[in-house]
Design a protein around this nucleic acid. Structure first.
Length: 483
RNA sequence: CGGGGUGUAGUGUAACGGCAGCACAAGUCCUUUGGGAGGAUUUACUCUGGGUUCGAAUCCCAGCACCCCGACCA
């Protein structure tokens, strides 16, 4: 019993199911993903987490470059006057903007906002770059950090005051082009979450109440977090001509007529990492989907004095043969094999290969899956093939598990009392809805905080009343409490 | 920002208003290594700032941080 207690101190000692918040906080820290700092809500992203972010960047960057988007970098500081140009936009963001008011000891004539998002600073440049339809489209993305001084208590990765993201900003000649690009990007997000992060999502249109401040409409991808809350994973906004009118982004079209441009903006952030950690992790720690894992395979040699040399040699040979994967050989002599097993499980490495004297003798290795704990003896000649196969199987398994969880946590109903109990049971309600903002407010109040998440596309006509009011429903929508 | 809780070595925990301890971790050496090894030895602590007191980890006030719950956001 005493030994058990000791063990618990080293590992995660909260269970994911019973106490999700505690579990999440422990895993994030023990797996060396983040560090707190003196500034509340501003956290260190440690190398192991940053590598994951780099993998996500690489994936997304490749996708957007394929459709012609280029990266650039715009200033961190935004003059107050610029931020104030688009009225809805300021209204939405001003409660959480951090300001720079001084340079050294002298007060600035105009205070500068630390970007909470960069529409305003970017569009002030776009105005100068757009003259004719030949200048369009403009397709630019930037990877940067932004600051939103929120007051809700911070949660590592999921809600921090400073976070990393990408924000894409495009300008088009027509509404059709704008619509098409916003949707193309949304589908890239869906693809990224499902293929890379192994996280199933549902996409749709945000309600007017929940759309981005300053946009005509917002498209989003959302998912269900293990604690039953919904999480917005990424958004793609059709800005219409709202910003082009405020910023004077005009062009001469083919008929020599002056027109305001049509714009989009879209982003996903380091929140996606938090979603992934929470989604796939278990009571032993993280579980990384192989395609995004910084380390896909860890080789742990089982060292005995007499056989040390042959075991280490074999381990190196195995490592070399797996050079097409992200492999780490843990040859540290001062940690026991058991200790290393636990350590790497905490970090969520998808596959562990054990190489000991028995394996040298039998020309084999032992491969252990992180997601299921399953152990397999694999002949030396088959290792590479088996590793490749298992990594794919694990990726698929994690997705399937998350998909099953998501499906189990979305419940369809047409009855408002049923909706209240669905929300009360920490699930997502899928309901017919009129789409009106004040109806949404009432639903929020009566359900104890549920908001609309999004409205799926291409719905069939429905002949029903709204789940809450007596108006006819326009569509089905997802409602839940969210992060 | 409002309500509730917590704050002692790196981590986890003890100490009546009276010498700040223990375990793990970390460093060095030896023995070990197929699921968090053992011995020897070393290092390290009262969140910050005020106040009460002969004396504060302990009582009071403020700030900060973390956790839980609410109004905003990706």
């Amino acid at each position: 019993m005493k030994k058990q207690e000791k063990t618990d101190e080293k590992g995660v000692n909260a269970t994911k199911l019973d106490n999700f918040s505690e579990w999440y906080t422990q895993v994030i820290q023990k797996a060396e993903l983040m560090e707190y700092t003196k500034v509340s809500g501003c956290m260190v992203i440690r190398p192991y987490a940053y590598e994951i972010w780099e993998n996500a960047q690489a994936f997304f960057d490749k996708k957007i470059k394929k459709i012609g988007v280029k990266n650039a970098s715009f200033p961190l500081l935004i003059p107050e006057e610029l931020l104030n140009r688009e009225k809805e936009h300021v209204k939405g963001f001003s409660p959480e903007v951090a300001w720079v008011t001084h340079g050294g000891n002298s007060k600035l004539p105009e205070r500068l906002a630390i970007r909470p998002t960069s529409e305003t600073i970017i569009y002030d440049s776009y105005k100068k770059w757009v003259r004719s339809y030949n200048d369009l489209p403009i397709l630019i993305n930037q990877w940067c950090n932004i600051v939103r001084w929120e007051f809700k208590h911070p949660v590592p990765f999921l809600r921090t005051r400073e976070f990393l993201w990408q924000e894409g900003h495009t300008v088009h000649a027509t509404k059709e082009e704008m619509d098409k690009l916003a949707m193309t990007i949304l589908d890239i997000y869906v693809n990224m979450f499902e293929e890379l992060y192994a996280i199933p999502v549902f996409k749709g249109l945000k309600s007017d109440k929940e759309k981005f401040a300053g946009a005509d409409y917002t498209l989003s991808v959302e998912t269900v977090f293990p604690n039953g809350k919904a999480v917005q994973a990424a958004t793609s906004h059709g800005l219409g001509q709202n910003f082009s009118k405020s910023f004077g982004i005009k062009f001469t079209d083919e008929n020599e007529k002056k027109q305001f441009a049509w714009q989009t903006s879209w982003g996903f952030s380091t929140r996606s990492l938090g979603i992934m950690f929470g989604m796939h992790g278990d009571d032993k720690g993280l579980v990384m989907p192989p395609r995004i894992a910084p380390i896909q395979v860890v080789i742990v040699p089982i060292i005995f004095d007499k056989t040390k040399d042959v075991v280490m040699k074999k381990s190196s040979v195995i490592k070399k043969s797996l050079s097409s994967f992200l492999v780490e050989l843990d040859g540290r002599g001062n940690y026991s094999a058991g200790w290393k097993f636990n350590q790497w499980e905490m970090k969520g490495v998808p596959l562990r290969i054990e190489v000991g004297p028995k394996d040298v003798e039998n020309k084999q290795v032992v491969i252990v899956r992180r997601d299921t704990g399953e152990k397999l003896s694999v002949k030396d000649k088959d290792v590479k093939k088996k590793v490749k196969e298992l990594l794919e199987v694990i990726q698929q398994n994690l997705f399937d598990k998350a998909k099953k969880f998501m499906n189990e946590n979305i419940v369809e109903t047409t009855d408002f009392d049923a909706m209240i109990s669905i929300i009360g049971a920490k699930k997502i309600a899928y309901v017919p809805w009129c789409g009106e903002a004040d109806c949404e407010d009432w639903i929020k109040e009566k359900t104890g905080g549920a908001k609309s998440l999004n409205i799926p596309f291409n719905q069939k006509k429905i002949e029903r009343k709204c789940v809450h009011c007596d108006n006819p429903a326009k569509f089905y929508a997802y409602f839940a409490k969210s992060y």
